Simulated scan of single mutants.
Amino acid sequence: MSAPTDKNATEIVQTTFANIQSNHQITDSWKIMPRVTYRYNYDDYRYLGNSNLTVGRSQHYTNSIAGELNSTVKLSKGEIGFGAEFRNENIHSSNIGDHDRDNVGLYAEYRTSFTEKLDVNIGTYLNYNSDYKWQIYPGIDASYAITDAFKIIGNVGTSQRIPSFTDLYLKQTGNIGNPDLDSENAFQSEVGFKYNKKALSLNANYFYRKIENYIDWMRNETTVPWQSQNTGDLNTNGINLRGTYRFDFSKDSRLNILLGYTYLDSEFKTARTETYSKYAISSLKHQITNTIDYQFRNLSVMFATRFNERITGPSYWVNDFRVSQAINKFTIFLDGQNIFNATYYEVGAVPLPSRWFTLGVKLVTF
C-alpha cells in the first residue's frame, strides 16, 4: 500500500498448512466427511529493506484452526446435505495488535428433481461469529433441460463478508483500521443457459449483485491516512460468456480451446463524499480470457492470455504458458508468467509481477 516509494522494501513470509480429511460410508445411503485444517503464517514486511529494521517494519503471526463435518443422505427422491463447521483465528501483530475470534456455521440443503427435466437445490447457512453474532443466508438454484444438450439455469442467494483483522485494527502511518466496521451483506441472482454437445460447450449468464455496507479504504486529502469504512451499497450488473471446443486428433492427441468474456457495470447507490478510494476506482469492467491446451500422451503444453480493462487506468494483456511432462509418478513442469513483460496495476499504484519462470517437479504417490 506504499507504492511507489517502497522500492527498497522486502518481505519475508513463512506458511505452514496441514489438512486431515476422510470419507466414511455409514450406510448405503448415508455418508459423512470430517476434516480438520490448521494454518500458521508469519509475515515480516520491511519498508526500508534490511538497512533499518527499527522503522517501517510490520510483523504478523496468525493461526487458524478449523474443523468441519459434512454429511449426505440419499432419499428416494433427492438428497439431503447437512453439516457444521468451527473456526478459530487469532493474530499477534506489531501493527494490528492481539485479537482472537470464533466462527460457527451450520448448513442444510435439499437437492431433488421435481420432474425429469427440472432440478432444484434449496439450502440455508446459519452463521455465528463472536464479533458479529448470528446471521442466516438462504439460497436456491434450479435448472430446466429444454433438450438433452440445452439447459436453462438460475439461482438466488445471500452471503456475508466479515471484516478482516487488517480492516478492523491496522495502525500504520498511512493506513488506519476501523473497529466499528459492519460486515458486508450481499444478495446475488443469476440467469442463463448451458449448452453441451459432443466437443462443444457454451455458457451464457446475466447476474446481479448488491453489496450492503461495502468496505473500502478512503481518504479526503492526500495528507490524510487511508481508513477502512462502510461506504454504502454497491450494485453490479454483469454478463459472463464462456465457450470451449475440443479437437480429438487421435486417442493420444487432443486440443482444447477456451474463450471467455466478462462485462461488469458497477454503481454506488449511496453518496461517497471522500475524494480517494483504493478499490472502487480499480474495479474490472471488461475481461477477455483465452486458453489453448494441447496434450499428446503425457506431454501437455498450455498457453493462456487475458485482457483486462478497469474503470480507471490503461488496459493491458497478460500472457502465461506451461509445459509439463509426466514420467511415471513424477511430473516435470515449466511455468512462464507474464512472458511478454507487461506493466500493469490492479490496486492503486502497486505494480504486479513482471516476467518470471518456475521450474518444478511434482510427485503423486497415490
Rank of each mutant, 00 (worst) to 15 (best):
residue 236 T to E: 05
residue 131 D to H: 10
residue 100 D to L: 08
residue 267 E to R: 10
residue 58 S to E: 11
residue 242 R to V: 00
residue 290 N to D: 03
residue 42 Y to K: 13
residue 80 I to P: 00
residue 9 A to Y: 04
residue 140 I to P: 09
residue 302 M to T: 11
residue 323 V to I: 15
residue 189 S to G: 13
residue 15 T to Q: 14
residue 173 T to V: 11
residue 166 T to F: 11
residue 185 N to M: 10
residue 254 R to E: 12
residue 48 L to C: 00
residue 116 E to R: 10
residue 58 S to K: 13
residue 221 E to L: 08
residue 175 N to R: 15
residue 333 F to K: 10
residue 166 T to I: 10
residue 164 S to G: 07
residue 138 P to G: 11
residue 103 N to I: 03
residue 216 D to L: 05
residue 69 L to C: 09
residue 266 S to Y: 05
residue 342 A to T: 15
residue 288 I to S: 04
residue 276 Y to V: 06
residue 204 A to T: 01
residue 213 N to F: 09
residue 67 G to H: 05
residue 87 R to Q: 14
residue 106 L to H: 06
residue 260 G to F: 07
residue 123 G to A: 05
residue 228 S to R: 07
residue 77 K to N: 14
residue 184 E to H: 04
residue 337 Q to R: 08
residue 44 D to V: 02
residue 284 L to Q: 14
residue 311 I to A: 11
residue 44 D to H: 14
residue 341 N to W: 01
residue 15 T to I: 09
residue 116 E to N: 15
residue 247 F to S: 03
residue 312 T to W: 00
residue 143 S to K: 04
residue 249 F to E: 02
residue 279 Y to E: 12
residue 317 W to L: 12
residue 360 G to N: 07
residue 24 H to N: 08
residue 280 A to P: 00
residue 283 S to C: 00
residue 185 N to S: 14
residue 229 Q to H: 09
residue 106 L to V: 11
residue 163 P to I: 10
residue 339 I to F: 03
residue 121 N to H: 10
residue 259 L to C: 08
residue 12 I to V: 08
residue 340 F to A: 07
residue 242 R to C: 00
residue 275 T to C: 00
residue 10 T to V: 08
residue 257 I to H: 05
residue 318 V to H: 04
residue 241 L to T: 04
residue 103 N to E: 11
residue 222 T to I: 14
residue 10 T to Q: 13
residue 252 D to T: 12
residue 44 D to T: 02
residue 83 G to L: 05
residue 98 D to L: 05
residue 241 L to V: 05
residue 251 K to E: 09
residue 159 S to F: 02
residue 294 Y to F: 13
residue 328 N to Y: 09
residue 2 S to H: 14
residue 264 L to A: 05
residue 202 L to C: 06
residue 49 G to Y: 01
residue 239 I to E: 01
residue 117 K to S: 14
residue 117 K to F: 02
residue 193 F to M: 07
residue 174 G to A: 12
residue 164 S to P: 01
residue 132 Y to L: 07
residue 224 V to E: 13
residue 100 D to V: 03
residue 218 M to N: 04
residue 323 V to Q: 06
residue 178 N to H: 09
residue 295 Q to H: 06
residue 29 S to R: 13
residue 176 I to G: 01
residue 215 I to M: 09
residue 1 M to I: 04
residue 125 Y to K: 14
residue 191 V to M: 12
residue 250 S to H: 09
residue 358 T to P: 00
residue 132 Y to A: 06
residue 209 R to Y: 03
residue 140 I to F: 04
residue 257 I to K: 01
residue 3 A to D: 06
residue 84 A to F: 10
residue 183 S to C: 02
residue 242 R to I: 04
residue 314 P to F: 03
residue 200 L to W: 13
residue 170 L to Q: 11
residue 343 T to I: 10
residue 359 L to R: 04
residue 34 P to T: 01
residue 225 P to I: 06
residue 295 Q to R: 13
residue 357 F to K: 06
residue 366 F to K: 15
residue 53 L to M: 10
residue 29 S to E: 07
residue 180 D to C: 02
residue 124 T to W: 00
residue 49 G to P: 05
residue 301 V to T: 12
residue 300 S to E: 08
residue 61 Y to R: 12
residue 110 Y to R: 09
